[in-house]
Simulated assay, not measured.
Amino acid sequence: MSDIEIPDADTPEDRKIQEPRLWRDDGWSARVIKNEDDDGWAVEMTQEGQSEPALVGPWTMGRDKKNPKPLDPPAFHTLVKTANEVLRRHEQQLHATLHKSVKIDAAEGRVTVKLDIVPEEDEPYAVLSAYDELGEKLAEIRVSPAYKLSVQRASDWAAGGFGNSG
């Protein structure tokens, strides 16, 4: 057997950095920076390929109370976990903003009415759709992305035969 160390295939050695104030690994960079708001330090976590950090937070002072504590493996892994959680929450919030639904009782039975906003840069729009209890589409129309879905509006739309959105 050879004692030659094989670099991690996912992280080329020239991309991996482990310095006291800069770590790059696992698709993330952690950089300790001067805190603009006070005399302390902050750390910013930036995902590879992104220009803006996903997370910026306070960083611990070192023993000399002037310089920052150096980054280390446990701190880096905690920061990666926290930054991934921030991104996951942001995605969930965005999804909740773009996709809403209400359930109503209509002549067709229990109906789910959905509003899906399509945030296209040039011409954003939304799609209002209705589905029966089996998931079969009853109706679909295009509406303004500013359309506010409510039980009352969905009920009115169903009562009107799923014509215009009102």
Rank of each mutant, 00 (worst) to 15 (best):
P124M: 01
K114M: 11
I104H: 02
I33E: 11
L94S: 07
I6D: 09
A106L: 01
W23H: 03
L149G: 02
D39C: 07
E85N: 12
M61G: 14
S129L: 05
R110L: 08
K69N: 08
I117S: 06
R88F: 00
E121A: 15
S101T: 11
Y125Q: 05
I141R: 00
D116P: 01
D122S: 10
N164H: 13
F76M: 09
I104S: 01
K16N: 09
E5G: 08
I6C: 05
V102K: 03
G160E: 06
E123Y: 00
A126G: 14
V80N: 05
P7S: 04
G57S: 10
E13K: 07
A146T: 14
A159C: 01
L128Q: 08
Q92H: 11
G49C: 07
R142Y: 11
A158S: 04
Q47D: 00
E52L: 12
L134F: 10
Q92A: 15
P7L: 04
L134A: 13
K69A: 11
I141F: 02
E5D: 08
Q152I: 12
A154K: 07
L128K: 06
E36V: 11
E44G: 05
I17S: 04
S144H: 11
I4T: 15
K137C: 11
W59C: 01
K69P: 02
D64I: 06
P12V: 06
R63W: 10
K103A: 13
E48Q: 15
E91H: 10
L128F: 06
R21N: 09
G62A: 10
V143Q: 01
P12Q: 06
G40Y: 13
G49V: 02
D64G: 00
P12R: 02
Y147N: 00
A75W: 00
N35W: 07
S129K: 05
D116Y: 03
L98M: 05
A9V: 12
G161L: 02
D72E: 13
E19P: 02
E36H: 08
G57N: 07
R88S: 03
E5I: 14
D39A: 10
R21P: 03
H95L: 08
H90I: 09
N84A: 12
Y125H: 15
W157E: 00
A139H: 14
K81E: 15
